[in-house]
Design a protein around this nucleic acid. Structure first.
Length: 456
RNA sequence: GGUGCGUUAGCAAAUCGGUUAUGCCCCGGAUUGCAAAUCCGGUUAGCCCAGUUCGACUCUGGGACGCACCUCCA
């Protein structure tokens, strides 16, 4: 039985889908005005893992991850670059896809873009207005009247009184209450035509929060199972989504809210505003993408994850151990898990406990130890199959261990020379060659079957 | 100021009221021409102070420290 930590309940709860065997999941994706950093990688990898686990558990899951392709930052960046909004966003959507693909992230079933759902958003705003929850302000914006929605704050655990105490809420003239948020922004003269849509409230563009409410209900229905995203979206974004969706549809919006923890640098949240971020492509120049994926999944998704080269190096070595176990056995390419087998039972129990990949991966290491000891092909096949559930261990072990390099032929040549020296009992020469290779980061491993090599 | 989360061995990171987490590092042994890999064994824990309990890293209370949200952020 699967349990999920539900932010709404602040507790782990047994997962019961709305429709038997069917899961509908929405995850807040990227605002595409720059390259994705490791924080974005974590959301993508974590919810990809969730998606895969539901599938492995026999659910029919529909996964939606949106793309925000219209907002203040995009408009500003496009203006700076002197290019159109569309050309800017398309470029970064493509880059995001390339990064996600590299990390082994499955494409969601739908990737709706905000600009493609403006009519749905307008329809929703109209409903909110009809329900007395939205109003046209003097400045031309349409705002949400937060105090008219009972239960505002139930996700983030904030009361309207607490929020006021913060005194950090932007005061805008048009708002009836400083906590109200904008649903529709009136058009400004200095903005490009590309960012203006017609509406009954005048020309303008959508506020940030409304897109997720509109696209979620359009693609998954007014009430669906899971909504995810980074912990920083809990408030105000997800709180506002609830207010919009429940306010418009007059029914429950989402049953389980999942939030992943931050990636940190020097114990601080990695974020664009702090400028302490590493882009995915930057990191992938130095580390294998699977190492990065492994690094992310080795921690529980809700825990903070500190990023540093030392941690990535550690992850690389750990993953080496798993691949090394596979190398010796000739594990078949069949990746069918035997779920009755003892390690798989423990793996499943870990995953069913709020997607505890840290524990699941620990089981993988114990299984690897078993493979090394028993040299059992079945055990190796099981290790490979369980790894694949997490999107790991799917490559040829030798390809992974040897890594990418252009001097492979040279290495093979030197190994041949060393083997010749060994045959001639010229061990001094054999050791000299090995040491020379080691200096280049190449480790040789002799075995009855011949000499293997790998990069460290 | 309000709210929430966290503090586990050298590093990373889980579980659990009593039984080896796991990975990397380190030490010893087996193995090897020498190595590497592997196997066997070992060292190193639970921020502090109270309480509950036969027994607490695990539960309760208090404190310290750290992080996050309350503003765009995954």
């Amino acid at each position: 039985m699967l349990k999920i930590y539900n932010t709404l309940a602040r507790d782990k709860q047994e997962f019961v889908s709305i429709e038997p065997n069917v899961v509908r999941m929405y995850v807040c994706g990227m605002t595409v005005y720059d390259y994705c950093h490791l924080g974005h990688a974590r959301v993508m990898v974590v919810f990809d893992m969730v998606y895969r686990w539901f599938k492995a558990s026999g659910y029919d899951i529909t996964y939606v991850r949106n793309i925000t392709d219209i907002d203040d930052k995009i408009i500003r960046r496009a203006a700076e670059n002197n290019e159109s909004i569309h050309s800017l966003t398309q470029k970064f959507v493509d880059a995001m896809h390339a990064d996600a693909d590299a990390l082994g992230v499955t494409r969601p079933d739908h990737e709706p873009r905000a600009t493609q759902y403006v009519p749905e958003m307008l329809e929703m705003i109209a409903k909110l207005e009809a329900n007395g929850l939205a109003y046209l302000a003097a400045d031309g914006d349409v705002n949400y009247a937060v105090r008219k929605f009972e239960g505002y704050g139930k996700l983030s655990g904030k009361s309207l009184e607490d929020l006021r105490a913060g005194e950090r809420v932007e005061v805008t003239e048009g708002k009836n209450d400083p906590l109200d948020f904008v649903l529709w922004k009136h058009a400004r003269d200095d903005e490009a035509e590309e960012v203006k849509w017609d509406s009954k409230w005048g020309r303008g563009r959508p506020g940030w929060h409304i897109e997720c409410s509109a696209m979620g209900s359009k693609l998954l229905g007014e009430h669906f199972d899971i909504h995810g995203g980074g912990a920083d979206l809990q408030f105000p974004h997800h709180e506002n989504e609830i207010a919009q969706s429940e306010g418009a549809h007059q029914c429950s919006y989402v049953n389980y809210w999942m939030h992943n923890g931050f990636v940190r640098v020097d114990n601080e949240k990695m974020s664009k505003s702090l400028g302490n971020f590493f882009t995915i492509r930057e990191v992938l120049k130095q580390y294998d993408a699977e190492v990065v994926r492994f690094f992310i999944l080795r921690a529980h998704y809700r825990s903070p994850l500190n990023y540093s080269d030392a941690h990535l190096d550690d992850a690389k070595k750990a993953l080496d151990r798993l691949y090394t176990a596979l190398k010796s056995g000739s594990a078949s390419d069949e990746r069918v898990v035997d779920w009755n087998e003892a390690y798989a039972v423990r793996f499943k129990a870990a995953m069913d406990d709020d997607f505890n990949t840290a524990e699941a991966i620990a089981v993988l290491f114990e299984l690897a130890n078993d493979v090394n000891r028993s040299q059992s092909e079945n055990a190796a096949a099981q290790l490979k199959a369980l790894g694949a559930v997490l999107g790991l261990l799917e490559r040829d072990p030798l390809v992974f261990l040897q890594g990418a390099g252009s001097d492979d032929a040279q290495i093979v040549g030197k190994i041949a020379a060393r083997n010749a020296a060994k045959l001639a009992k010229n061990y001094a020469e054999a050791d000299r060659i090995r040491k020379a290779l080691l200096a280049d980061g190449i480790v040789l491993e002799d075995s009855a079957a011949g000499t293997n090599w790998r990069r460290v």
